[in-house]
């Protein structure tokens, strides 16, 4: 490598240390013999040193703020989209298999309400309150489904409606009134029996307890009487004792119910 032209092509790589040992040695040998290349090498070294030592300028903090803001907006968007997907899943779960028209319209209405609700919500909301809102909406959705189904002609629909209430933590006035109405007036004994259990589930509500007490006087079907007594014992309703004593005096009382009443009295006393 005695050629100046060739050596000049290698100078940058030589100064970077990216040549092989052999190539490096050849360049060094040439530089010792050639003052012009030696000078050029010195200049190059100086420039590279200067470039490497030039300090960096820091940008203003404003770009960090605006990026963080963008990032947060994007994160919120993602969590809202996830929520939307979750909502879709809930609607699918509650969707009746027979695909009746009314169910579709109720679900669509609720979905619409839900979408409207979240669109109007402030952009930033803690995850916790989002979960809370979701749960509330789910309950509302169930309540509406329940109230609609309770008026269906098929007993199996009404039974399903009553069973929705088991997963509600607390019933609102409409739900409880609907259950009471069902217990007193529904023509199917299985539906009435389910209503008894549902009302016992809402035993925190005074109206539910009173409805059960009233039903104990009114219902004459042994199966329902047994269900009512079980429910009253379960919710520890001592006000049921006078009516139970009265029942024992009735001659026509079914033997199984009589025994149930006796057991009930002894466990409530």
């Amino acid at each position: 490598m005695g050629d100046c032209f060739e050596v000049k092509d290698y100078l940058t790589s030589y100064l970077e240390g990216s040549l092989t040992k052999e190539e490096e040695k050849k360049v060094e040998e040439h530089l010792e013999d050639c003052p012009s290349c030696e000078e050029e090498c010195k200049q190059m070294r100086k420039l590279l040193g200067l470039m490497g030592s030039a300090p960096k300028i820091l940008p203003d903090d404003s770009i960090r703020f605006s990026f963080e803001q963008l990032l947060n907006e994007e994160k919120t968007k993602i969590s809202l989209e996830r929520k939307k997907e979750k909502r879709g899943a809930i609607v699918r779960t509650l969707w009746p298999k027979n695909g009746q028209q009314w169910a579709a319209s109720v679900a669509m209405l609720i979905l619409g309400l839900g979408l409207g609700y979240y669109v109007s919500k402030p952009a930033l909301e803690s995850t916790l309150s989002e979960v809370e809102a979701l749960r509330r909406e789910m309950t509302e959705m169930k309540e509406m489904m329940m109230l609609t189904k309770l008026n269906q002609p098929l007993a199996s629909d009404r039974l399903q409606a009553v069973s929705y209430t088991y997963s509600m933590e607390e019933g609102n006035t409409e739900v409880i009134e609907a259950l009471i109405n069902t217990l007193n007036n529904d023509g199917n004994e299985n539906v009435r029996m389910a209503a008894v259990d549902a009302l016992a589930h809402f035993s925190n509500d005074q109206r539910a307890r009173e409805a059960l007490l009233y039903a104990l006087k009114q219902q004459d079907d042994p199966a329902i009487q047994i269900a009512i007594i079980d429910a009253l014992v379960k919710i520890r309703e001592k006000k049921a004792l006078p009516q139970m004593q009265k029942l024992l005096k009735e001659k026509e009382l079914h033997e199984v119910v009589r025994n149930k009443v006796k057991d009930g009295i002894s466990s409530l006393i």
């Binding site: 940008p59 203003d60 770009i63 990026f67 963008l70 990032l71």
Partner: peptide, 12 residues
């Protein structure tokens, strides 16, 4: 500044 901001906007 603007261009740097633009890069991170596109990144996102």
């Amino acid at each position: 500044h603007d261009l740097t901001q633009n890069v991170f906007f596109r990144l996102l």
